[in-house]
Amino acid sequence: MTNPAFLEVTGVNKSFGPLQVLKECSFSVNKGETVVLIGPSGSGKSTLLRCINLLEPPSDGSIRFQGKEITEDLRNADKLRAQIGMVFQNFELFQHLNAVENIMLAPMKVLGYSRHDAHDLAVELLKKVHIPDRADHLPDELSGGQQQRVAIARALAMKPKLMLYDEPTSALDPEMIREVLDVMTELSADGMTSVCVTHEMGFARRAADRIIFMEQGSIIENASSDVFFGGEVSPRAQQFLNQILH
């Protein structure tokens, strides 16, 4: 008997009023795997990501995380989100707290860490994202890339089983994109299970185990990175790749 997938999305639909944004979306993610969602703007990628941690409850369909159905009782959404880290386009840092304090907050409030232990954890995570010297800096004293790395460290502070990234580099200047993608690549190499919405094809080629291509709310392509970038894809996916790579 095969083990169930770490994350399993089956037949998920999502509508906002009369507008159907997701249409029968199904895919699975194995433990330690990095899956990248790509596709044109408005194809439903970010909505699908938000459904996974119930920021947007699906209209119907099933989402199983670590073998358990998570959409049946939305009262458990906060408990679920403690196990799923999410990094947004905009860094969502508290502007009045420095880098260390931003990272300390959730372990103290949610996990019951002492201030001392939370501080030690935050310092370690700033080393992990390569900005230990920015511990005492407020967000407006940091570059965009540094702020996003603090946001990643903050998500990691909850010791998540799964990381979700929603276009984490789209608000960054080009020279800052690489430093954030390098951290994400290192986390994937360390075995962190992750699902990432991005337009950065270099990252997708380098770090992804599988690529999911979406259009108009549907999953059009679900292939290994090698197959996808090797050209063995549908004409529509190939057209998208040609536009984004050239």
Rank of each mutant, 00 (worst) to 15 (best):
M1Y: 12
T2R: 14
T2Y: 12
E8P: 02
V9C: 08
V12Y: 04
G17F: 04
K23T: 12
K23I: 11
C25P: 00
N30T: 14
E33A: 01
S43E: 08
S46T: 14
L49T: 04
E56W: 01
F65Y: 03
F65W: 03
Q66I: 08
G67C: 07
N76R: 14
A77G: 11
R81M: 05
G85T: 10
F88I: 07
F91G: 00
F94K: 06
Q95F: 09
E101K: 03
A106C: 02
P107N: 03
Y113C: 09
S114T: 15
S114Q: 12
V123M: 14
E124R: 15
L126H: 02
I131L: 09
D136E: 15
L138K: 10
P139S: 10
P139Y: 06
D140I: 14
G145D: 05
Q146E: 15
R149A: 10
R154L: 00
A155W: 02
A155K: 01
A157S: 12
M158R: 09
M163V: 03
Y165D: 07
P168F: 04
A171T: 05
E175V: 11
L181G: 00
M184A: 07
C196F: 04
M201E: 05
G202L: 13
F203V: 01
F203A: 01
A207D: 06
D209Y: 05
I211F: 01
F213N: 03
Q216I: 10
G217S: 11
I219R: 00
I220S: 06
F228V: 07
V233A: 09
V233C: 04
S234Q: 14
Q239D: 14
Q239S: 15
L241V: 13
L241Y: 09
N242C: 11
